[in-house]
Lab assay of single mutants.
Amino acid sequence: NQASVVANQLIPINTALTLVMMRAEVVTPMGIPAVDIPRLVSMQVNRAVPLGTTLMPDMVKGYA
């Protein structure tokens, strides 16, 4: 099973992602693959992402 990107903290809307905000976890359903974490750094979320939420492609501006 491939790990997905999960929020390590509450990420407010329009926040630029940093490594500290994300962790890799095997979850269902799968979200953004953990291998993409370096690519996500400095991209912004388009909604508030609660702690423990799996990041989906439509939550990150410019990802999809």
Rank of each mutant, 00 (worst) to 15 (best):
N1L: 14
N1M: 15
N1K: 03
N1I: 15
N1W: 08
N1R: 02
N1E: 15
N1A: 15
Q2E: 15
Q2M: 13
Q2N: 09
Q2H: 15
Q2Y: 14
A3R: 03
A3F: 06
A3C: 15
S4E: 01
S4T: 09
S4P: 01
S4C: 05
S4I: 01
S4H: 01
V5W: 02
V5Q: 01
V5I: 11
V5H: 01
V5C: 10
V5P: 01
V5L: 04
V5G: 02
V5Y: 00
V5D: 01
V6Y: 02
V6G: 01
V6L: 10
A7H: 01
A7R: 02
A7K: 00
A7L: 03
N8P: 02
N8R: 06
N8F: 09
Q9R: 06
Q9M: 10
Q9S: 14
Q9C: 05
Q9Y: 08
Q9V: 09
Q9A: 09
L10M: 09
L10V: 13
L10T: 11
L10E: 13
I11L: 13
I11C: 05
I11A: 01
I11K: 00
I11Q: 00
I11N: 00
I11S: 00
P12R: 08
P12E: 10
P12K: 09
P12F: 07
P12D: 12
P12S: 09
I13L: 09
I13G: 09
I13V: 08
I13P: 11
I13Q: 11
I13S: 12
N14T: 05
N14S: 07
N14G: 10
N14W: 07
N14A: 07
N14M: 07
N14Y: 08
T15P: 01
T15L: 04
T15Q: 10
T15H: 09
T15G: 06
A16C: 08
A16H: 10
A16T: 09
L17P: 02
L17H: 00
L17K: 00
L17C: 01
L17Y: 01
L17A: 00
L17V: 03
T18E: 06
T18H: 13
T18L: 07
T18Q: 09
L19M: 11
L19W: 05
L19A: 12
L19F: 05
V20N: 12
V20D: 13
M21S: 10
M21P: 01
M22W: 02
M22S: 00
M22Y: 02
M22G: 01
M22E: 01
M22N: 00
R23F: 05
R23G: 14
R23V: 14
R23K: 13
A24D: 15
A24V: 11
A24T: 10
E25F: 03
E25N: 05
E25I: 03
E25G: 04
E25M: 04
E25W: 03
V26A: 12
V26S: 15
V26E: 15
V26T: 13
V26R: 02
V27T: 12
V27I: 07
V27G: 03
V27P: 01
T28G: 05
P29L: 14
P29W: 07
P29F: 11
P29H: 08
P29S: 08
P29Q: 13
P29V: 13
P29K: 10
M30D: 15
M30V: 13
M30G: 06
G31L: 01
I32D: 01
I32T: 02
I32H: 00
I32V: 12
I32F: 03
I32M: 03
I32K: 00
I32A: 03
P33S: 15
P33N: 14
P33Q: 09
P33V: 05
P33H: 15
P33W: 09
P33C: 14
A34T: 06
A34P: 06
A34M: 04
A34Y: 08
V35I: 08
V35R: 03
V35D: 11
V35Y: 05
V35N: 12
V35T: 15
D36Y: 05
D36M: 03
D36C: 05
D36V: 04
D36A: 08
I37W: 02
I37F: 04
I37V: 11
P38H: 12
P38D: 06
P38M: 05
P38E: 09
P38T: 11
P38N: 07
P38W: 04
R39G: 07
R39M: 12
R39Q: 04
R39Y: 14
L40T: 01
L40N: 00
L40Q: 00
L40G: 00
L40M: 07
V41I: 10
V41N: 06
V41K: 05
V41D: 03
V41C: 07
V41E: 10
S42M: 09
S42W: 07
S42V: 03
S42D: 05
S42K: 07
M43I: 05
M43N: 13
M43P: 00
Q44C: 07
Q44L: 06
Q44W: 06
Q44V: 11
Q44G: 05
V45I: 07
V45F: 01
V45Y: 00
V45K: 00
N46K: 13
N46E: 13
N46A: 08
N46F: 08
N46W: 12
N46C: 04
N46L: 14
R47P: 02
R47L: 12
A48V: 09
A48F: 07
A48Y: 10
A48K: 07
A48N: 09
A48E: 13
V49H: 02
V49M: 07
V49G: 01
P50S: 13
P50C: 06
P50D: 11
P50W: 13
P50N: 14
L51D: 11
L51E: 13
L51W: 07
L51S: 13
L51K: 10
L51A: 12
G52T: 03
G52H: 12
T53K: 08
T53V: 13
T53Y: 09
T53C: 04
T53H: 09
T54Q: 04
T54L: 05
T54H: 03
T54C: 04
L55V: 13
L55C: 02
L55K: 00
L55E: 00
L55S: 00
M56R: 04
M56A: 14
M56F: 05
P57T: 05
P57K: 07
P57S: 13
P57C: 14
P57E: 10
P57L: 05
D58R: 04
D58A: 09
D58W: 04
D58P: 08
D58H: 05
M59D: 14
M59T: 08
M59K: 02
M59R: 03
V60M: 06
V60Q: 01
V60H: 01
V60A: 02
V60N: 01
V60R: 00
K61F: 07
K61D: 09
K61Q: 13
G62F: 05
G62Q: 13
G62S: 13
Y63W: 14
Y63K: 06
Y63P: 04
Y63N: 07
Y63A: 05
A64K: 13
